[in-house]
Every structure is written in C-alpha cells, then in structure tokens.
Computed example of a mutant assay.
Amino acid sequence: MFNKKKPNVENIRNLKIIISEKYNIPENSILSIAELACHEPNCPPIETIITERNENGKVRNWRIAKPINDIQETDINNLNNSENHNH
C-alpha cells in the first residue's frame, strides 16, 4: 500500500547539473525538482516539474510527463522553455 517508489537522490542531483548547464542557470538561482501525481483527465499519472527561481524574481518552469527516475538526458534536451514571470 505504501510501496511507492521514491525518486533517487542521485538522479535528482544529476538532473540539476544537466539542467543548470543546458539552461545556463546561475548559481544564485534556486532549482527545484518535484514529482507530482495527477488525477485529472488527459494528464500523465506522474509528472516532474522543474522550477528555476532567480534572485531577480524571474521564474522558469519545465514539465516532463515522466517520474524523475525515468527521465533521460534526451528528455531535458527536448524541453520547451516555458517562462513565467512572477514578481
């Protein structure tokens, strides 16, 4: 019942490095990676949300329709850069 597979910490660390390098994320930005379960229609069962919060208030979000442990570098390379500006 509570046998949910947790994301591998090493996978999260590697994803942060790959994303930081690909999108030139500055060291003073906060990069968070979260795995969410979705119960809405037409929504993947597990989705990974990647968020960059820059100290200037700029926020960028990326979504991958896979669990963290299944994400490959090609998924990162295929991301569309969807920027949200929250001040």
Rank of each mutant, 00 (worst) to 15 (best):
residue 57 G to Y: 09
residue 58 K to I: 09
residue 47 E to L: 07
residue 42 N to A: 07
residue 77 N to W: 05
residue 9 V to R: 12
residue 44 P to W: 03
residue 56 N to R: 10
residue 7 P to I: 00
residue 85 H to F: 15
residue 24 N to C: 10
residue 72 Q to K: 15
residue 46 I to W: 02
residue 7 P to L: 03
residue 22 K to P: 04
residue 2 F to V: 06
residue 70 D to V: 02
residue 12 I to H: 03
residue 14 N to E: 06
residue 37 A to K: 09
residue 46 I to Q: 04
residue 25 I to V: 12
residue 5 K to R: 13
residue 83 E to P: 10
residue 77 N to D: 10
residue 18 I to W: 14
residue 27 E to V: 03
residue 67 P to W: 00
residue 82 S to A: 14
residue 35 E to N: 06
residue 1 M to V: 11
residue 11 N to E: 07
residue 80 N to A: 08
residue 16 K to L: 05
residue 11 N to W: 00
residue 56 N to L: 09
residue 27 E to T: 07
residue 3 N to M: 05
residue 35 E to V: 02
residue 15 L to Y: 04
residue 40 E to I: 03
residue 1 M to Y: 09
residue 82 S to I: 15
residue 63 R to T: 04
residue 17 I to K: 12
residue 49 I to R: 10
residue 67 P to I: 00
residue 48 T to V: 03
residue 52 E to D: 09
residue 47 E to I: 11
residue 63 R to M: 01
residue 53 R to H: 05
residue 21 E to C: 04
residue 47 E to H: 01
residue 82 S to K: 15
residue 29 S to T: 06
residue 16 K to M: 10
residue 16 K to S: 13
residue 12 I to V: 14
residue 28 N to A: 07
residue 67 P to T: 04
residue 58 K to A: 12
residue 50 I to K: 02
residue 76 I to K: 11
residue 19 I to L: 11
residue 8 N to H: 10
residue 31 L to Q: 03
residue 38 C to D: 03
residue 37 A to Q: 08
residue 50 I to Q: 01
residue 77 N to F: 05
residue 13 R to Q: 09
residue 80 N to D: 07
residue 50 I to R: 06
residue 23 Y to C: 01
residue 13 R to G: 03
residue 49 I to W: 01
residue 36 L to F: 12
residue 36 L to C: 13
residue 12 I to E: 08
residue 23 Y to R: 09
residue 35 E to G: 06
residue 38 C to V: 00
residue 66 K to A: 12
residue 37 A to H: 07
residue 8 N to F: 02
residue 41 P to E: 08
residue 63 R to L: 01
residue 44 P to E: 00
residue 30 I to A: 02
residue 3 N to F: 10
residue 43 C to K: 05
residue 4 K to P: 01
residue 63 R to G: 02
residue 63 R to P: 01
residue 10 E to I: 11
residue 49 I to E: 09
residue 2 F to H: 08
residue 29 S to R: 00
residue 61 N to L: 12
residue 26 P to D: 08
residue 27 E to A: 06
residue 73 E to R: 15
residue 45 P to T: 00
residue 5 K to F: 02
residue 53 R to S: 08
residue 72 Q to E: 15
residue 43 C to Y: 02
residue 81 N to W: 11
residue 18 I to R: 14
residue 23 Y to T: 03
residue 72 Q to G: 05
